[in-house]
Amino acid sequence: MTAVTLEQIQGEHDRIGALIEKFKTQSIPTEYRVDAATIPLAAGERLAGPIFKEDGSLDYYLIKLPGEGTDLEWDAAQEYAASRGALLPTLRELALMRTNLRDAFVSEAYRSGEQYEGNSAYAWYQYFLYGYQGNGHKSAALRAVAVRRFVPSVI
């Protein structure tokens, strides 16, 4: 039998400590509960799906209003959505709609309500044919859809 040294014990202790820390930070299986919600939709509206907060909890449901504006500069697109009591979608919302409501869009670029951070003369858009998102000059004539956000009550 070989003798055990303090250095060997300390080395094993450090190794076990590192394993414990790794175990604490690894993903742990969880359950996700989906609460029943009644989402009122007006004629022609389409439910795009849920938007989640960073912690994984439900933030709101995204609803696409019927119709779309065409050949709209960014300011005009904002006015188009506002005239319908709605907003232009964010980039994240456009990506969700491309995934869940692709049949409701033509294969062109749609405006986002988000300005490009690097230059206030530019705004973001979602191109529906290939799925990429980019930014372009606000004066470019693009399509626009209006969306609303439904937050279920907590009563």
Rank of each mutant, 00 (worst) to 15 (best):
Arg92Trp: 04
Ala43Pro: 06
Arg98Trp: 14
Ala121Gly: 07
Asp55Tyr: 05
Thr90Pro: 08
Ala140His: 12
Glu68Ile: 00
Arg92Glu: 13
His13Glu: 01
Ser83Ile: 00
Ala109Cys: 11
Leu142Asn: 15
Tyr122Met: 15
Gly131Gln: 03
Gly56Arg: 00
Tyr110His: 02
Gly44Thr: 06
Phe105Glu: 02
Ile51Tyr: 08
Lys24Ile: 09
Glu117Leu: 08
Ala95Leu: 13
Ile51Met: 14
Gly17Met: 11
Pro50Lys: 07
Ser153Ile: 05
Thr38Glu: 15
Gly17Pro: 04
Arg149Trp: 12
Arg46Val: 01
Ala3Asn: 14
Trp124Lys: 02
Arg15Gly: 00
Asp103Gly: 13
Ser83Lys: 11
Glu93Pro: 06
Val147His: 06
Gly49Ser: 06
Phe150Tyr: 15
Arg143Met: 09
Ala123Lys: 06
Ile9Arg: 14
Leu62Met: 07
Gln10Gly: 02
Leu58Pro: 00
Ala95Ile: 04
Leu101Ala: 04
Ile20Asp: 04
Glu7Ala: 15
Arg15Thr: 10
Pro66Gly: 03
Arg33Thr: 14
Tyr116Val: 00
Ser153Leu: 07
Phe105Gly: 02
His137Phe: 09
Leu72Gly: 04
Pro29Phe: 00
Glu117Trp: 13
Asp35Arg: 15
Glu108Lys: 05
Ile9Tyr: 10
Ser120Met: 11
Gln115Asn: 14
Ile28Asn: 09
Ser153Cys: 06
Asn100Pro: 02
Ser120Thr: 13
Tyr125Val: 01
Gly131Pro: 01
Leu129Phe: 03
Pro66Thr: 04
Met1Glu: 13
Thr2Asn: 12
Ala123Thr: 07
Arg84Asn: 12
Ser112Ile: 02
Lys53Gly: 01
Gly85Pro: 07
Ala95Trp: 12
Leu65Pro: 05
Leu72Lys: 09
Ala43Asn: 12
Tyr127Ala: 07
Tyr122Thr: 01
Tyr127His: 14
Leu19Asp: 09
Glu79Lys: 15
Val145Asp: 06
Ala3Glu: 15
Asp35Lys: 15
Ile39His: 08
Tyr61Asp: 01
Ala104Tyr: 05
Gly131Lys: 01
Tyr80Ile: 00
Gly134Arg: 09
Lys22Pro: 00
Thr25Leu: 10
Ala109Tyr: 02
Pro66Ser: 04
Ala3Trp: 09
Gln8Lys: 14
Ile63Ala: 09
Pro66Leu: 01
Thr30Ala: 11
Asn100Ile: 01
Arg92Met: 11
Gly69Met: 01
Gly131Asn: 02
Tyr80Gln: 05
Ala36Leu: 14
Gly136Asn: 13
His137Ile: 07
Ser107Met: 11
Leu91Trp: 03
Lys138Gly: 05
Gly113Phe: 08
Asn135Lys: 10
Asp103Val: 11
Ser107Ala: 15
Trp74Gly: 02
Glu114Ser: 12
Tyr60Cys: 02
Ala86His: 05
Leu101Asp: 11
Arg33Gln: 11
Gly85Cys: 09
Leu87Ala: 13
Leu142Cys: 04
Arg84Ser: 11
Thr90Ile: 08
Val106Thr: 13
Arg143Glu: 05
Leu47Cys: 10
Asp75Ser: 09
Tyr122Arg: 15
Lys22Arg: 13
Ile20Tyr: 08
Leu142Arg: 12
Thr38Lys: 15
Val154Trp: 02
Glu21Gly: 06
Glu31Leu: 15
Phe23Ser: 09
Lys22Ala: 09
Met1Val: 10
Leu6Pro: 04
Arg102Val: 08
Leu72Trp: 05
Leu94Ala: 09
Gly17Ser: 12
Val34Cys: 07
Ala18Val: 04
Ala48Phe: 03
Asn119Gly: 05
